[in-house]
Every structure is written in C-alpha cells, then in structure tokens.
Amino acid sequence: MIEIDDLSKKLKKSDVLQNITYTFEKGRIYGLVGKNGSGKTMLLRAIAGLIIPTEGSVTIDGKVLHKDISFPPSIGIIIENLELLPQFDAETNLKILAAIKKTASLKDIQHAIKRLELDRFATLKVRKYSLGMKQRLNIAQAIFEKPDIILLDEPTNAIDEKGVERVLDILQEERDRGATIIISTHNKDDVFPICDEIIEISNGRLKL
C-alpha cells in the first residue's frame, strides 16, 4: 500500500506538487490523468523515491521514504525518455538489471520478453529497435521482476493499437497478481478501460 500524506514539492520556487494526500491500495490500477506539466511525472518520481519531498511523506507498506527506506523495495518503473543500453539485445539488457536484485531468473526474463512480443527480435541490438519496440522493452523491464509497485509514465507512447491492447492485458495480469499499478497519461482513452480508479491532477493538485 502506498500512502501519500500532505506531499508538496517545490522546484525553484514553483510548486510542482501541492498538499497531495492519497492512498493507493494493493491489486488495483490507477490512472493518473492531467495535462503536460500538471505534475503527473513528478508524483511518480516522488513515489519512486527519486525526488525528496519539500513537505509531507510517502509511505510504502508502513515504511517512510527517505527515512526508513530510500526507494520502494519492490518497484518497476518507466520514466519518460529513459532508454536501455543500445549496444545490447533485450535479453542482455534485462540480465544486467536482474543481476542487481537477483530476484528474477532467466526464465522470468525470457517470459517478460515473450509477453511483450519481442522474442522475434531476440538477437537484435536495442539501437536497431523502433520507438515502439523500445517502449515495449521498457515495459518488460518494469514487470520482469514481478514488482509490488509498477509506475508507468505514458506507457503506451509510440506503441501501435494492437500493441496497446497487449500491454493493457499484461497490466491486468499484473494487477491480478497483486501489484499496485499507477499509470500516468494524457491519453485517457488508452488506459481508461483497465483502470479501477482515475485520478486527475492539475497544477500539482489532485482533483478528487
């Protein structure tokens, strides 16, 4: 469970997040909707422990971020503009990441690649991937370790219609496994069908 209590974040005197209080339950998919610059990505970063709140706190399963823990212990994330290592293929990329926590087996890696339908490009280096394929690999990177929390910033960007359907199926499977999923998007239509709750964010404030 993710509990956000009166969270605010200032960056260069501008309030990017203001007094956000919300609880994200386990086994649910949340859609975080808002315009560009509304604070969606910043909220995801705060939940991931990447930024330090100016005020308030984020608590993950009873442990306060930046006090008890640095990052959520089990998290998968996609943040905008992040790419994997272009000189390696998909499997090698995931193997490198898997070596850090050592919670995912080779089977888990291959399964994630197959789920995202990237197994056809097994030997292809990531530098030769299209944008959509890179995004699929990013999603594979976020789910292959079966994390408790999955944060996805614009996950359907650059993915074709059929691919989006596949991604939404996968996210529902992850929810059924018990993961808390938060999807930030400005494209409501893509993710609306699978979200258990939609949260709107505007000027750094949640509209509840």
Partner: peptide
Amino acid sequence: DYGKYIILRGKSR
C-alpha cells in the same frame, strides 16, 4: 537516464 534503473534496484542510496 539508465543509471536510475540501476539505483532503484539497489538497497538504498
């Protein structure tokens, strides 16, 4: 960039 994927998988900062 990519370093964030690494640091997030670590135990702590």
